[in-house]
């Protein structure tokens, strides 16, 4: 990220109220749209804009072995397996190759922080917007 955005992120971090506003703005968008789980290290651009943290096992690298034949989750049969959805959407959107990337273990310190500001500050990998 550029020096400007890095400085902006640092400025926000120094001002807790401003930071809270940034988190509020991000959540106001991401929670209703993506049902964001607030991990603070968004990989939505790699997972066809479907949040993998909704998985009961928080699988960020692909489905577990328990996806049912109808694409439902083994733990909550009333829901779809999140990776079943991710695969379907990635295929439709031409983003299948992005699923191949190995996602790092979650940094639990970043939970409930702003993923956008974390990208600006260079704390997490930047999103990959383009198609495959």
């Amino acid at each position: 990220m550029s020096k400007v955005s890095e400085n902006f992120a640092k400025f926000c971090e120094k001002h807790p109220r401003l930071y809270a506003c940034a988190v509020l703005a991000e959540n106001a968008f991401k929670k209703p749209v993506f049902r964001c789980q607030d991990c603070g290290q968004c990989i939505l651009s790699y997972t066809a804009f479907t949040c993998p943290m909704r998985c009961p096992k928080q699988m960020r690298n692909g489905p577990c072995g328990g996806t049912r034949e109808d694409g439902r989750c083994e733990v909550y049969p009333e829901r779809h397996c999140i990776w079943w959805l991710i695969y379907r959407r990635a295929k439709r959107m031409g983003r299948l190759k992005k699923l191949r990337r190995i996602q790092k273990p979650v940094d639990r310190r970043l939970q409930h922080t702003s993923a956008w500001l974390n990208v600006f500050a260079g704390k997490i990998d930047p999103p990959s917007w383009g198609k495959d």
Binding site: N61, P63, G65, T67, W83, W84, Y87, R88, R100
Partner: peptide
């Protein structure tokens, strides 16, 4: 590592194996 050739979606099962090999 483990692989489940019988789970859905099928194509994801091969991709998942490739990822485990990469890992």
């Amino acid at each position: 590592g483990a692989a489940n050739p019988f789970g859905e979606p099928f194509e994801m099962r091969v991709l998942n194996l490739a990822k485990k090999i990469d890992a």
